Each structure stands twice: as structure tokens, then as C-alpha cells.
Computed example of a mutant assay.
Amino acid sequence: MIRRLARPMLAAVFVTGGIDALRHPGGRVELAAPFTKKAAEVAGTPDDPEMMVRANGALMALSGAMLATGRMPRLASTMLAASLVPTTVVGHQFWNEREATARQAHKIQFMKNLGLLGGVMLAAVDTAGKPGLAWRAQNAAKSARREARLAKAQAKLAVS
């Protein structure tokens, strides 16, 4: 029951923010320009800050919708975490602000995003009470070893 309530609540900020970035990239483009230039050099992608802002917005909106509806919530949360880090670092550089009011506002937004990052990280590892892949792999290996020992013991008994 908690997951059914918490996931949409966590996702809401990503869906609304993503749609806003997609529809109105505005001031985000100026903030993103230095980052997208470096990213374009490294990744060999086009240096188009507006496209990157819109793409990030689309990723957040889509991933947020997936999380809210419970469709592949671990993958959606991982994608949200991956998109939130550059968004936060690029958009809320409180350490570069000279004006105290602006610095405080960006610091609050930075800390809010840090809290959201913690939330989506928890959601990314939440298996909803079901065993995760690592546990399943370990359990399968343990079962295989157990079965091998049993087969070996049965073979010895059959020979004697």
C-alpha cells in the first residue's frame, strides 16, 4: 500500500518538472550550454543546449510516469537518478552565487534535489518484497551445489 502511494508522490515533481522543461526550456538553456558543450565534445553528440534540456525533460517526464504507474519502477528510478545529477549540478550552483538571496534559494533547491536523489535511489533498489537478481543468482548457485553434492552421494550409494 505504501509503495502505491509513495511512488506517484515521488514521481510528481519529475513529471511536472519534465513537462515544463520540455515545453518551456527558457532559462535552463543558458545554464546548460557550458555543460552540453563539454558533453558534446566527449560524447560526439550535437552541441544543442535546447535539445538537451528538452530531452532531459522528456526523460524525466517519461521516467516519472513509469515510476508513478509502477511500470518498471526500478529502471525508471535509475533513469531519474541519472538525469537528476546533471540537472542539479548545472541548475543550482549555489557556490557560484554572489547574492545572498539567490545563493540561499539555489542551496535550498540543491538540497531538495539531493533529497529527491536519495528517494529515487531507494526506489531503484526496492524489490517490493521480492528477491532481487543478486539474491536469486546466489540462491541458484547454492541450490546447484546442494544438488551436486546429493547426486554425488546417491552415485556412491548406487555403486556400493
Rank of each mutant, 00 (worst) to 15 (best):
L59C: 09
V159T: 09
G129S: 04
R28I: 09
T87D: 12
V125Y: 14
G70R: 10
P25C: 03
H24K: 04
K152P: 00
K156R: 11
G18D: 01
M66P: 11
L10I: 10
F35L: 08
L67E: 09
R136L: 07
M66D: 12
L22N: 01
M1R: 00
G44T: 14
N96R: 13
A61P: 07
A151S: 11
L62Y: 08
K38C: 02
G115N: 07
T36Q: 07
S143Y: 04
M121R: 02
K112V: 13
L31P: 03
L122D: 02
A6Q: 04
M72R: 15
R7M: 00
D126E: 05
R98A: 15
A81W: 15
T87V: 15
A11P: 00
T36G: 09
V90P: 08
L84S: 13
L122Y: 04
K38D: 13
I19A: 02
S143C: 03
R4G: 00
P46A: 14
G17K: 01
H92I: 14
R3S: 04
D20P: 00
A123Y: 12
A33L: 03
G64I: 13
K112A: 07
I108L: 13
T88G: 07
F110H: 06
A82F: 15
S63D: 08
A39G: 01
K38Q: 14
W135A: 05
A141V: 03
A33Q: 06
K107T: 09
S143R: 08
